[in-house]
Simulated scan of single mutants.
Amino acid sequence: SLGGLETRGSGRTLINSPPGEKLSRKIVVFTGPNTASAAEAFVSALKFHGTAIQIGQSTYGKCSTQTRIALSDGSVLQLTNGRVLGPEGVSCSPEGLEPDISVAGSRLYDTAYLVRKALTLLSTQDALPETRQEYTLQQVADEGRLTVRALRAWDRLPSGHVNLVLDLVEHDMDLLGANQDQVQAWADTARDSDDPNLARHARELESLAEYMKSSSWK
């Protein structure tokens, strides 16, 4: 099991990983007090199955999901509609996930330090290959696999669009998994939508689609 959700309407739903070969090497995940919700579920699943070492600080401890309802006066009502479940089928801890290796606050955002720490840990558990081919974002684009998630992984997603990923979750839009065509299609949908909470994102989606279409990733 990878985890799941428990809601009043749908009951408990657990998600299992698909069949096939799984990652056999350990990885390191960096966490802090802003690591929350789906990110916590991801880290929890990796640790439960012995795949990840957690470095940083305790996560937020957000064990619930919310939905937003637009009201006639333009305000928004946010309701808790379910609980996030860990791989063992129980709700996550409101105290958050405790790291295997704690990092002081002054070091939490020192990326170079965290990477050095991670490589040291990994080298003691699973020898790293002597050489690794660097896979560039341009190669991903050339292969037709450029998504918002890829931009985020290569740190090329404009900071103004990071919150857009979270805002669109309530509209069942997985922006991270979207390519340029999908982003443009959602921009068109938002522009013509009667839902003001979706329509207000039309310009941001247009801007992101244009960025993905016209930029060079070298």
Rank of each mutant, 00 (worst) to 15 (best):
L114A: 08
A39Q: 04
G86V: 04
S44V: 07
S207L: 10
V169P: 01
G11E: 08
P94L: 05
L14E: 01
L208T: 01
S102Q: 14
A36D: 00
D110C: 02
G50D: 03
L79E: 15
R145Y: 12
L71E: 13
S193N: 08
G160S: 13
K47D: 05
T189I: 08
G74V: 02
T13A: 12
V162F: 01
Y113H: 12
K22S: 11
E6W: 12
S207H: 08
H161C: 09
D181R: 15
A118G: 10
A45P: 02
A38C: 11
I15C: 04
R191K: 13
V169D: 01
L114E: 04
S193Q: 05
L146I: 09
V29P: 00
L164C: 09
R132I: 09
T131A: 15
H201V: 00
I27A: 10
G89S: 06
A104W: 09
T136H: 10
P94A: 03
E204H: 11
A187R: 00
A209K: 01
P158Q: 02
E88K: 14
S64Y: 14
D110H: 02
A209G: 04
T13N: 10
L14F: 01
N163H: 10
W154I: 04
T31G: 02
F30C: 04
K218V: 11
S44D: 10
Q78A: 11
V140M: 05
R132N: 08
T131E: 14
A112C: 09
G20I: 03
Q184T: 06
A202N: 04
S214Y: 11
S216C: 14
Q182R: 13
S215Y: 08
